[in-house]
Every structure is written in structure tokens, then in C-alpha cells.
Nucleic acid binder design. Structure first.
Length: 897
RNA sequence: GGGCAGUUAGCUCAGCUGGAAGAGCAAUUCCCUUACAAGGAAUAGGCCGCAGGUUCAAGUCCUGCACUGCCCACCA
């Protein structure tokens, strides 16, 4: 059996993923006899390349899926990608630009061909990267939001909503990105603070002297002003409401109106109203029946304005208007001012609110259903704190602008009956249908044109949990019945509204049921200094590089370990290094055991705890397993990872394996076999428990271990760790009732530690075995030491032990006081008296502090009378132990002289 | 403006329903002890953000404040 001295992740990872794929380890079909556990992946964009956020998100999902599989569920994790709408179109447009072309040069059809070509060539890269990450996805089910099945779902959804009258067309103020040339929904706008100015402009009355001063951050829009608004209760303007103003530069008559939304404490208390280019102003206009003048067009150029400003860009117009206002004496002052500006979430271009004819989805009913589901705890948030903002958002939702003026996406399935020349016939209703209708129901015309717009990419994303199971393509869908609703959605909070809320809305609308019962919201991965990772900051850690350098299991473990639900995390090379070291520790502990199996006959799995350490490690393990399982179930991956780390390293390796060496070197193979059975039982259990986090290394060790311990006579289905049920869920039971083992063991551990300290501080070489004498202070503990002398000898390098009462200290010896023993280490010629004095003095200081603390507490009548009896008793014990310690230490100090 | 997190060792973070401050990394000392130097044994390092309150007892519960970060908002 050759195991390399250091864990080599590369070969192992390739080997096992290939094995899993070949054996269809991740595929799942409806099975009435098993409970399903289902996750659908948040589909990465086809433009995506695996970043830390993906790595975290998918590692967490994989941990859940693999854990649930161990628990015996019929698990399914559905993979797929999102076509990514604007983002993807932008990428291809950039490529065209390098060739000196625009999409218009190609035309819609050729451009889409180009898009598909690009998608087919590069769109699956991220899926391959998920394979490297070890994700147990059922690849036969790979879905794409624009493939045929998903497109059918989109059409079906649109047609249904259209039929119910929930989708409608209207001209409204929308968020417009002039670079992308499309409308955006409210949440696709990102606000960012920007330094700018607040311009104070004089608006003179038309029929009398005087003026009002308005303050604005957008002076150019004054060209489209149709009113000035003031607060109804603003005394400064009490007399002027209803008066007319002569709009400077335009020479147009506008009214002064009163509206509650105006905040009299801001600026001058008077607001210029540009209904066609500002959301608030638009509402003021509606309430006051104001005229709407569009002065900015879809390309961001000025229109319907005096000739000298026409066709200027917004920024140019701003400069010109400010200059002219100033020249004509209307500009009162210019203040520095910082305010937030909306930007396109895909290209960062400043968003221009403008009037546009778009498709909207009325979301009121759906939102209410989604809110109810949350309030009835049908959708449970982890952590719970996300429920409130989620509900609040849904409750204040405006209708969703679902049309986009781009080409890449689901074209709106609405057909218009047209004349031969392509003109829409005014009397005929638009028809929503899967395909172009044959005949117009009203005019019997046969020529149709499809709507030019495509749907918001999030429309198809919202259908994802049902479309991946084929909703919209054929009836009697077994998959949908069996797997829907899914079990949990795992996502970062940045798409809670953009995506999560909408899936719930659509799920309630089309399936009358929530899409998932749990929403597990994890944090964002940040860099070492707490900054969000981004290409522009250059602080990105590439997960692929980490996998290459430290191994995939190390990456996964490090991510799991810092993934407290709902909290952002910082990762750095050090955390991956530590995880890599842990993987290596697992590897080497296993290697030690496997090496020792060589001369042993096959093991049968009979566990017979023969001595204290056996009972202790079993008790410790079962305790750990209980906690870890509960942590997995509550998505506390960080706690699970930490618990496993601590158990394995500090309990199993540092103590149990070290102690097992006593029996391991025994010439009696029965003794050796007995301890190996336990070593392997614990190791296997541990490997299973941690396998959801570290699937590769555990699979490799599992196989090697079974091959060696059972001499290949292992049932084939048991070879694969992921395909066995969790043995830890059925503990052997030998650890039960052994709580005392933990206590007894701690007596031994304390003694060993005390001796180690002496060795370390006295600089005694580990090669030198020394003598130890124990003066028993507590009779009840004497037996424990007597029975387990070998442990002390082994781990503290003691050659012989003398145990008894009234044992006195030798000259030239070091001493220490453990809770129930005085320990003497004779150090003829080795002792450094000064050092020993210092050490004992230090101990005394600590003990005195302890004693004072206890006395203090016990002297308080309130404590003694009010605290629980156990606490008072504990304090008394502590006091007496401290007292003994001090007297023994002082005694020995005097002894040294 | 509203809401939500966080503030514990030099760094990254644990500390459950209140009862003697923990881990990893970094630092110091000693050790290649036949699983592992990607390791072992030990050491040092903390007014647990600040101020009050509840309690016999507060890192832990309550209130206020400060700072940091995030989300939301009709920030002219």
C-alpha cells in the first residue's frame, strides 16, 4: 500500500469526479419510496467565469446535497445557466466593436446567430468549473434559460398572465439606459453617491415683480418644466400658489402648485417640476394635472427644446443652460452638493428617467401571495432577519417593467395584425400566443408581426424552479410533481429581490405553491481587508488558482469554515493554507492507520472498547457527531467545519492516535487488531461526517481504507462514501453512558500536560525518559492513574512511575500540582534551580489570584444565599483546591531553598 | 431619513439557553519522538467598542452612544 507522504489533490480529484460521472452518482429520478431533497442551482450567467462568490454558493449547496444524501434522501441538484440578457449582449457587442462593427451592421437575425455561436462556444465554461469544484449536479438535467423547454415555459407564463390582464402595455416613466438602449426595471438601477452641484435658479413671476428660487441638481431639465411645486403648509409661499411663472430661457408660462411631497426644509422649499424626467415630479404632475414635455430622447439627446439646445447631450445641455442662466442673471448660486445618481447595473451609464411605451406586469396579487407565504412561514429565511426586508420590499412593489429593447432574450410572444406595408391595423387587438396566429379573429387578416422587444432576463429566471422540471412542455409532469416545491434555495442577498422574491411570486401564481421551503442566504466573500472583491480593485482571489495550489477540498473547507449564515466573510491565502494543512493531517492520520493494517488479517468491524482511551474517544466522537449533524441541518457550515476540525486534530490525532501507539507496537496481534478496529471505526465515521465538505480526499481514503481493512472483500456499493448512508447516525452505542470516560481522561490529560510543561521549561530533551512520582491528594483519583500509567509514560516520556501517599519530594526535582496529585520529577543534574523557582512562583501567583477570587465570591452573602447550590459548591471546591495548591507549591519553594 | 448586521489576542474569526476569556495564522522557546516539519510539545499576547441598567454573577440580557459595513427611500 503506497500512500504518498503528502496529500496530492490533483490525481485524486480527477479520478473521483470521473468516477462519479461514469457511475451517475448524482442523477436522480422520482422514487415514491424515498423522500426527495431538491435544490435548483442559481444559474450562473453564460458570461460567467467561476469567482469566489460562485465557489462559496456552490460549495454550500453541494455540502447540503451530499449531507442529505448521506441521510438517505433522494437528492437532486439541478444545474444550468442563464442567458444573461443585457450582460451577455454587451459582451458580444464589445467583440463586434473590436471588428469595427455594431449590431446594426449585422441586423437582428445575423446578430442573434452570432450570439448563439458565442454562447455555444463559451457558455458552458462555468459548468466545467463547477465540476472541478466537485459539485454533485445531475448533469443530464442541465438547463439553459433560452433552450426550448425553458422558452416554452416563458411563453406559457406570458400568455397566461396576458390572458388574466396582468400584463399590459403602457407609456410610463421608466429607467432608461441610453448606452444599452433599453428600459430597465427599478431594481436594475444601482444608486451611487456622486459629487455634483446644487444650482439655485430664479424663476420670475409672469404678472408681477418678484420670483421664487428653486434648487436643482439637474438644471438642464428646466427646459421641460411644467410647474413649480411648494409644500401646502409653507408660509413663505402661502400667497404664491396658483400664480404663474415665466420659465427662463424657454419663455413659457408655468404654474406654481402645492403638493404634499415637497419638503419645505430642503433647498429653498420650492421645486421645479419636470414630469417627463423625474419619478417624483411625474407623480406631482399626475396629482396636479400637469402637462408632460419630453425633452430627452432614448439616445440621451435633447429634443423639444429651443433650437440652441436641441440635439445636445444631457451633459452638454447642462453646461449650456447653466451658462445662459448665469449670463441672464437667473443663476443665484451654485453649491457643492453630493447626491445619489442611478446607474445601469450592467454598464454603469447614468440612468435617465423618461417616458416610454413598455410592457408591464401587475404584481400586486402575486406580491400579496408571496408575503402571505412568508408570514405563514411557508418560506423560511435563514437567517431569519432577512424576512422583514423581504416582506417590506414586496409590499411596496411597483409594477414590473418587463420589456427590454435589446435582441438577446425571449422575444415577447405578442403578435400584431398588420397591413401589407407592415402598419398595425388600428382595430385589431394584439394576440399573445406560442406562434404567429394563422388568422386575425377580428379582421381575418393573415399577416402578423411579432413585438420587437424581449423580456427582462429575470422573467425567465423567475420561472427557473418550475421550468427546470419542464413546466410548459407537456402535461402530467412526474418530475414537477415529485420534486416541486424544492427544499432550499441557496443564494447571496444581492439577488434577494431581483430573483428570489420573483420566483416566489411566480411559483405562487403558476403552481399555487412556494418554490422552496427554505431560503438560505449566505454572505459575500470579501478580501483580507474587508473589501468586496472586484476586478477593478484587483483584489480578486481566483478559486481556480486556489484549487490548483491548495486543492479543492481545502478551498471548500476554508469557505465552509467562514460561512456563518448571513454574514460576509473575509478570505485570504492563509485560510486556504490552514485548510490545506488540515487535509494533509487527515491524509497522514489515515496513512498511519493504513500502514498498520498490513500485517493484520481482515477486520470485521467489531468494536470492543477495552480501555479508558477507547471509551473516551467514542464518547467524544458521538458528542461531536451529534453537534455536527445538527449544524448541517441548520446550515451552520462554519460550526460544523470547526467542530470537525477540532475533534479530529486535537482529540483524535493528538491524543487517541498517540495513545494507540502503545497497543500498535504490541507483539500480540489481537491487541493491535482491537485498537485498529476502533481507530477505523472513528476514522470512517469522521470521514463520512466531513465528506460533504471534503468529498475528494474522503472518497480516496475511504476506498483505500476499506480495501486494506476488509482485504477487498467489501460489497461494491460500500466502496463509495457518497453512496453509503450515514453510519454516524446509527452510533455503535459503545460510547453511551461513558460520560465518565471524559472526566477520567481529563485527569490523565492534566497530569500529562503538567509534566510536559516541566519538560519544556526545564529543557529536557524529548529523547530522555524520566522518572515521575505522584503524591496522591485525592484517593478517589488514585485508581485512574494506576490503571492508566501507560498513558502517562507514553505521552509524557516517563520511564517509571511511583504512586502513593506521603511521597516526599527528592532533592533536585521539579514539582507541579495537579488537581488531585503532587507531581515530582527528579532531575539530578538537570535542574536549574532559578528556573524552577521562577516557575513555581508564577504558579503561586496564579493560585493566589484564584484563591482571592473564590474568597471574594464566597464572602458575599448575596452570592452564597442566591446563587444555585451547585455554583456555590463549585466555588468552595475551587477555593480548597487553590489552597492546597498554594501550600504545596510554597512548601516546595522552601524545600528548594 | 428608515432598517439590518458587526465591534473579543497583532491578523481572521469562535464563544449555545448568563456561572473561571477560545481557535487558526503571525511571534518566542525546544524538538526531524518511525502518520504528518503542511508536524509535535510549550510560552507570550485581551479594561470582550464606550456609557449606563438588570442580576448574587454580564463578552453573553436591556437601553443609549460611537465607529464600520450593507440594504431600502419620492436625498429637488
Amino acid at each position: 500500500m503506497d500512500m504518498e507522504k503528502v496529500y496530492n489533490s490533483k490525481n485524486v480529484e480527477e479520478k473521483w469526479y470521473k468516477y462519479w460521472i461514469e457511475n451517475k452518482s448524482f442523477s436522480s429520478k422520482p422514487d415514491k419510496n424515498k423522500k426527495p431533497f431538491t435544490i435548483v442551482i442559481p444559474p450562473p450567467n453564460v458570461t460567467g467565469s467561476l469567482h469566489m462568490g460562485h465557489a462559496l454558493n456552490n460549495t454550500l449547496q453541494d455540502i447540503i446535497i451530499r449531507f442529505k444524501k448521506l441521510q438517505g434522501y433522494n437528492t437532486l441538484w439541478v444545474p444550468g445557466t442563464d442567458h444573461g440578457g443585457i450582460a451577455t449582449q454587451n459582451v458580444v457587442e464589445k467583440l463586434l466593436k473590436k471588428e469595427g462593427k455594431t449590431k446594426y451592421d449585422l441586423g437582428r437575425e445575423k446578430f442573434l446567430e452570432r450570439m448563439w455561436q458565442w454562447r455555444n462556444e463559451t457558455g458552458d465554461i462555468i459548468l466545467d468549473q463547477l465540476k472541478k469544484l466537485g459539485c454533485g449536479l445531475d448533469w443530464d438535467r442541465t438547463a439553459f434559460t433560452m433552450d426550448e423547454v425553458r422558452s416554452n415555459a416563458v411563453k406559457k407564463a406570458f400568455i397566461e398572465l396576458f390572458g388574466k390582464g396582468l400584463i399590459y402595455r403602457g407609456k410610463r416613466l421608466v429607467n432608461w439606459c441610453s448606452r444599452c438602449g433599453t428600459a430597465l426595471s427599478d431594481i436594475e438601477v444601482e444608486y451611487e453617491d456622486e459629487k455634483s452641484n446644487l444650482w439655485h435658479i430664479k424663476y420670475p413671476f409672469r404678472d408681477s415683480d418678484g420670483y421664487v428660487i428653486v434648487a436643482t441638481t439637474r438644471p438642464e431639465t428646466m427646459l421641460g418644466d411644467t410647474a413649480v411645486a411648494v409644500a401646502p403648509d409653507d408660509e413663505r409661499y402661502a400667497g404664491v400658489v396658483g400664480k404663474t411663472i415665466n420659465l427662463p430661457l424657454v419663455n413659457k408660462e408655468i404654474k406654481i402648485v402645492a403638493d404634499y411631497i415637497v419638503d419645505k426644509s430642503f433647498g429653498t422649499g420650492a421645486v421645479k417640476v419636470t414630469p417627463a424626467h423625474d419619478a417624483t415630479d411625474n407623480e406631482i404632475a399626475k396629482r396636479n394635472n400637469l402637462e408632460l414635455i419630453e425633452i430627452i430622447d432614448v439616445s440621451g439627446k435633447m429634443i423639444n427644446v429651443p433650437e440652441k439646445y436641441a440635439s445636445l447631450s444631457v451633459i452638454e445641455a447642462r453646461k449650456a443652460v447653466v451658462a445662459d442662466l448665469d449670463a441672464q442673471g437667473f443663476l443665484v448660486k451654485t453649491e457643492d452638493y453630493s447626491h445619489s445618481v442611478g446607474r445601469c447595473y450592467r454598464c454603469s451609464t447614468t440612468i435617465e428617467p423618461l417616458m416610454s411605451e413598455q410592457w408591464f406586469l401587475n404584481v400586486k396579487g402575486m406580491s400579496k401571495n408571496a408575503v402571505d407565504a412568508a408570514n405563514e412561514e411557508k418560506t423560511v429565511f435563514v437567517p431569519q432577519s432577512w424576512k422583514k426586508p423581504y416582506v417590506l420590499w414586496l409590499e411596496n412593489l411597483r409594477d414590473w417593467c418587463i420589456s427590454r429593447q435589446i435582441w438577446w432574450g425571449h422575444r415577447i410572444p405578442v403578435y400584431y395584425c398588420v397591413e401589407e406595408n407592415g402598419q398595425r391595423k388600428p382595430g385589431c387587438e394584439p394576440i399573445a400566443a406560442f406562434e404567429a396566429p394563422k388568422q386575425c379573429p377580428s379582421c381575418k387578416g393573415t399577416k402578423f408581426l411579432q413585438d420587437e422587444d424581449v423580456l427582462d432576463t429575470w422573467f425567465s429566471s423567475a420561472l427557473w424552479p418550475i421550468s427546470v422540471f419542464g413546466w410548459g412542455s407537456g402535461d402530467n409532469n412526474e418530475d414537477l410533481k415529485y420534486f416541486y416545491p424544492t427544499s432550499v434555495l441557496v443564494t447571496g442577498h444581492e439577488i434577494l429581490y431581483l430573483w428570489v422574491a420573483r420566483m416566489v411570486q411566480f411559483g405562487m401564481e403558476f403552481m399555487k405553491d412556494i418554490p422552496y421551503s427554505h431560503v438560505f442566504i449566505h454572505g459575500i466573500v470579501r478580501d483580507k481587508s474587508g473589501k468586496k472583491m472586484s476586478k477593478s480593485l484587483g483584489n480578486v482571489i481566483d478559486p481556480l488558482g486556489i484549487m490548483e495550489k491548495f486543492g479543492t477540498d481545502a478551498l471548500r473547507f476554508a469557505l465552509a469554515q467562514s460561512a456563518a449564515p448571513g454574514r460576509d466573510m473575509q478570505v485570504s491565502d492563509e485560510s486556504f493554507l490552514a485548510a490545506r494543512n488540515f487535509a494533509n493531517k487527515i491524509w497522514n492520520a489515515s496513512r498511519f492507520i493504513i500502514m498498520n493494517l498490513e500485517e493484520i488479517d481482515k477486520l470485521n468491524g467489531n468494536i470492543e472498547p477495552a480501555e479508558l482511551a477507547d471509551k473516551w474517544i467514542i464518547a467524544e466522537y458521538e458528542n461531536t457527531a451529534k453537534k455536527v449533524i445538527s449544524h448541517y441541518e441548520t446550515y451552520d457550515m462554519d460550526s460544523a467545519a470547526r467542530e470537525l476540525y477540532d475533534f479530529f486534530w486535537t482529540k483524535y490525532c493528538d491524543w487517541y492516535i498517540e495513545l494507540s501507539k502503545i497497543r500498535m507496537t504490541s507483539t500480540d496481534l489481537k491487541v493491535k487488531k482491537q485498537v485498529l478496529e476502533i481507530l477505523i471505526y472513528i476514522l470512517k465515521s469522521f470521514l463520512q461526517l466531513i465528506s460533504p465538505i471534503m468529498p475528494f480526499i474522503t472518497a480516496e481514503i475511504w476506498e483505500t481504507l476499506l480495501r486494506q481493512s476488509e482485504k477487498w472483500e467489501v460489497k461494491s456499493e460500500n466502496k463509495i462514501i457518497a453512496e453509503t448512508s450515514l453510519i454516524t447516525l446509527a452510533p455503535c452505542g459503545r460510547g453511551q453512558g461513558e460520560g465518565y470516560a471524559v472526566e477520567k481522561m481529563s485527569v490523565i490529560q492534566e497530569i500529562i500536560t503538567k509534566i510536559r510543561i516541566i519538560r519544556s521549561e526545564m529543557n529536557i530533551s524529548p529523547a530522555v525518559h524520566i522518572e515521575a512520582l505522584f503524591n496522591v491528594l485525592d484517593d478517589s483519583k488514585e485508581k485512574i492513574v494506576k490503571e492508566n500509567e501507560s498513558y502517562i509514560k507514553q505521552l509524557a516520556k516517563i520511564s517509571s512511575i511511583i504512586l502513593g501517599k506521603d511521597i516526599k519530594r527528592n532533592k533536585n526535582s521539579a514539582m507541579a500540582v495537579a488537581s488531585s496529585f503532587e507531581i515530582f520529577i527528579p532531575l539530578e543534574g538537570l535542574i536549574d534551580t532559578e528556573k524552577e523557582k521562577n516557575r513555581i512562583n508564577k504558579e503561586i501567583t496564579l493560585a493566589v489570584q484564584e484563591k482571592e477570587r473564590c474568597e471574594n465570591m464566597l464572602s458575599k452573602e448575596s452570592f452564597v444565599s442566591r446563587a444555585p447550590k451547585e455554583e456555590v459548591e463549585k466555588m468552595r471546591i475551587r477555593l480548597s483546591e487553590a489552597g492546597v495548591k498554594i501550600s504545596k507549591l510554597t512548601e516546595s519553594l522552601e524545600f528548594i531553598g
